[in-house]
Amino acid sequence: MNMTVAKSDISASIPSAPTPPAAAKIVPLPLKQTTMNTRIRAGLVRAASAVIPPLVMIVLLLTAWQLLCMRPGATLPPPNKIWTEAYDLIVDPFFVAGPQDIGLGWRVLISLQRVAIGYGLAALFGIALGTLVGQSVWAMRGLDPIFQVLRTISPLAWLPISLAAFRDSQPSAIFVIFITSVWPIIINTAVGIRNIPQDYRNVAAVLQLNHFEFFWKIMVPSAAPYIFTGLRIGIGLSWLAIVAAEMLTGGVGIGFFIWDAWNSSRLPDIFIALAYIGIVGFLLDRIVAGIASIVTRGTSAN
């Protein structure tokens, strides 16, 4: 309602402003203003239609939760209890009250650091191995069956082996992240490399590109959409794995926080931690997707 009033104000005030001689030049202005206004309005409508439905759903779900868990004898805390009991966790994600008593923001950052190392290594190895498997028929025949078997193993099943090998929780957790996220990166990269159109290979052959030039100028851009699909699956899996790994290895990450809260019966804290994990996982996925859409701009279009 306010919007329409503002719009008519502007379009009404502008034609009256110019002096008569210049009127002919300035006539298009109110038109332009209207299109600007309608564009802003369209943008607001679009934003509202994207934001309002999920907000309504959240309110409905919270209400249902509240009603279900308000009864005496309910096993889970209702939202209002979570709000009052975990208030300090919600309002200040970055407090430091002691070596083991820090805000959830810090814990997420510590977990993210592990993920960054494990996932970064997975991306490097995954793309390199995927390129090898995609390029060489013999590497594919030798390695692909092994990869297909190994990738089905649950990340946590690797944990005892990595604990035995590294004898420390930090590198073990990183290894679990690595081993979880490396498979989809390898497999998608290999598919991307194998699917480089023969046309591009012909162009490279006619131009006599050497192996290095072929890699950077043809292979990487052509396989980029596939590689990023693998990277996106990988970041999701590694965020899934870090929580489970930290629950078992201890330390100060978000996963261990949940385990700790469970052991000391702080159920409301766990709900807050879950919200953090969900939001951070969503953001990680969006970030990788965003990078993908920038890097692969125009790649798939033909």
């Binding site: 046309d199 591009y200 131009l207 851009p221 052509s222 980029a224 701009r297 125009g298 279009a301």
Partner: peptide
């Protein structure tokens, strides 16, 4: 005995690199 730029090809489906 191998491809080279002294025999440039214009391919039927243009084969431009889309990126």
């Amino acid at each position: 005995n191998e491809p080279g730029p002294d025999r440039a090809v214009v391919f039927q489906n243009h084969s431009l690199l889309p990126w």
